[in-house]
């Protein structure tokens, strides 16, 4: 069933339809929040708050946008609020305990170690960025969203998004090259 149809049903009080939306997007929202704020517990709480807020505001959902864009926007705003109220002193390096590698469930052990080391280095470089740069890079490269979608989610001009992606990527590249992850 299409997202829009599920939204319509959920808006009328069908919690089953909302549960389907929840199942469809919970991991995407969770990974977005975790990669942005770097704390597993906080990311889980904010994911729950994202869906509760989405349910309360479901009647104001504009069908001109995709549901994913809308839910990511709510999640991003919550992450920004959380960052303002409680700026993290350090961010988890993201060793991803319990992470599920969907693309390759049984990789070669040596490749797995190399991949994990690389992922750790990427997360470390990502964690060093200011929140605004980190958030747009996650939306672009982890969530694979277009510049336009990111601008809609962040509620910022397209030019600002382009600049942030450019600067954020430049800083990360410098860091990753220093550590020898990217040659």
């Amino acid at each position: 069933m299409e997202d829009l149809e599920l939204v319509r049903k959920a808006e009328q009080g069908n919690q089953g339809a909302f549960a389907s939306l929840l199942e469809r997007y919970k991991n995407a929202v969770y990974s977005l929040l975790y990669r942005t704020i770097g704390d597993r517990e906080d990311a889980r709480d904010l994911t729950q708050e994202t869906f509760l807020r989405a349910y309360r505001k479901l009647s104001s959902f504009n069908p001109a946008y995709r549901f994913s864009t809308w839910i990511f926007r709510i999640a991003t705003n919550l992450a920004i609020d959380r960052h303002r109220k409680r700026p993290p002193r350090t961010i988890s390096l993201g060793t991803d305990e319990g992470a599920v590698d969907i693309a390759d469930p049984r990789p070669d052990p040596s490749q797995e170690v190399l991949g994990r080391l690389k992922a750790e280095a990427v997360m470390k470089a990502l964690a060093k960025l200011p929140e605004a740069l980190r958030a747009v890079l996650v939306l672009r490269f982890v969530k694979k969203l277009s510049y336009d979608d990111i601008a809609a989610i962040r509620g910022e001009p397209l030019g600002t998004i382009k600049t942030r992606i450019f600067r954020g990527r430049e800083q990360m590249l410098r860091q990753l090259k220093t550590e020898g992850v990217l040659l």
Partner: peptide, 12 residues
């Protein structure tokens, strides 16, 4: 760089 970012493992 894009590949390195995309290869971050999925979390659930």
């Amino acid at each position: 760089f894009a590949m390195a970012m995309e290869s971050l493992p999925e979390i659930s």
